[in-house]
Design a binder for these strands. Structure first.
Lengths: 213, 213
DNA sequence: GAAAAAAACTACTGGCCAGTAGATGCGTTT
DNA sequence: AAACGCATCTACTGGCCAGTAGTTTTTTTC
């Protein structure tokens, strides 16, 4: 991985955001980035903040200038893991589409891409969420429920519109969520399959599950 | 959960297995059972052996009479998580079947049942496997690969026999594995859905993925 | 029922690690 | 160039926990 890959947030342009606050955002992002990678590899509980600091070329107290404690870093990672997927879902739902079949395909494609792109964040989010404080845990869970609910709604409308098989159950939304969440546990960027190939197959599988193919 | 549920291994009958070795097996199983539950709830790394001992009503050194160290307990849990699924898969494959469609349905049904039955073991296995020593890790991974391979082979034969859609890709085996592994992350024995209902839906989803419905 | 063997316990240690107090350096202002 | 303020560091602590040494309790054997 390059030293500074895929910034999580674009620097806010000009007015309002001072150069200084951009620096702070940059450093915060780098901490989340490195922590995400290490938590992904070695697990949240068995990874120390000294490890994270070492990988950043700084010392542990540095981290405490940007995060309240270890758990706050995890919360930031989980936030990325779910909220990027949720955002792209809502953007796609709000966009143009011919019919429910095309919409489902596009939603699954976009979300699949994000999940592959943010693989490590997604894995950490799914695996380590339970280590969050009650408050953070609830906040993240609400985002997840919103995501699941909107997918379920899309399926329901597609059935109603007669575009998906009538015997398609509300379970299908769960299975599609499963397909998506399952990707990061076996897909590797260094593997044989290209990301686009995986996403194509994912879309095809989701349409089969919905009985829309 | 009852105090002593679902023994992992039947006591070997009579000859060969002394009463004493049955006691040892019983206690070993209880340790694995309780550890599995705690590792499932709180994660392997953040769960102490004192916790495990407390829950068993014994003290920590007791555990060291039955396991070399903490990691050996994890290895035993992972072993259950994958090998029971593998065993039922092979038993089912070896049995009678009308055609590939029926065989796939039966395999998915049987494995699905085991995964629900051994939910906590499966979750711990999937989530914590990387904390195993290199030797144990490889052994468990071999079992997993054997599992995946046999599912893939079943799909391939079904396509060849013309029972599954011809454009079905080898990916489908991965997706079916995903559906199965995904169950324990959302299914709860105390929830609304009965285990049999979930398994029925799982079978139906797997057949759709294979294009056999 | 005494002696031997086995099983489980009490009590400890050495290392690790999240989090902190206070020092140090470094850029900016005047 | 002195003084200020901010960013980061050095150095530490208190608690936790895997693993162990050696003792006590229970069971078995004769």
């Amino acid at each position: 991985m390059s030293a500074v890959a895929k910034p999580l947030a674009k620097p806010a342009a000009g007015r309002g955001a001072s150069l200084k606050s951009e620096f702070v955002a940059f450093k915060t992002n780098r901490i989340v980035e490195v922590a995400s990678h290490l938590f992904y590899q070695r697990g949240y509980s068995s990874c120390t903040l000294d490890n994270v600091a070492d990988n950043l070329g700084v010392t542990k107290p540095f981290l405490y200038s940007y995060f309240k404690n270890k758990e706050a870093i995890l919360a930031a990672i989980c936030e990325v893991g779910i909220s990027e997927a949720l955002t792209i879902l809502e953007t796609t739902l709000a966009g143009e589409h011919k019919n429910h079949r095309e919409l489902l395909a596009e939603v699954v494609r976009q979300v699949g891409r994000i999940v592959i792109d943010r693989q490590e964040y997604v894995v950490v989010y799914l695996r380590e969420m339970k280590h969050l404080s009650a408050t953070d845990h609830e906040r993240i869970l609400r985002l997840r429920h919103s995501f699941d609910h909107q997918i379920a709604e899309l399926i329901r409308e597609g059935i109603e519109a007669g575009e998906f098989r009538q015997d398609t159950d509300s379970f299908v939304a769960v299975w599609i969520g499963g397909l998506i969440s399952w990707i990061p546990t076996w897909y590797s960027p260094d593997g044989q399959r290209s990301a686009e190939e995986v996403v194509d197959q994912l879309v095809s599988a989701a349409l089969r599950l919905a009985g829309a193919e």
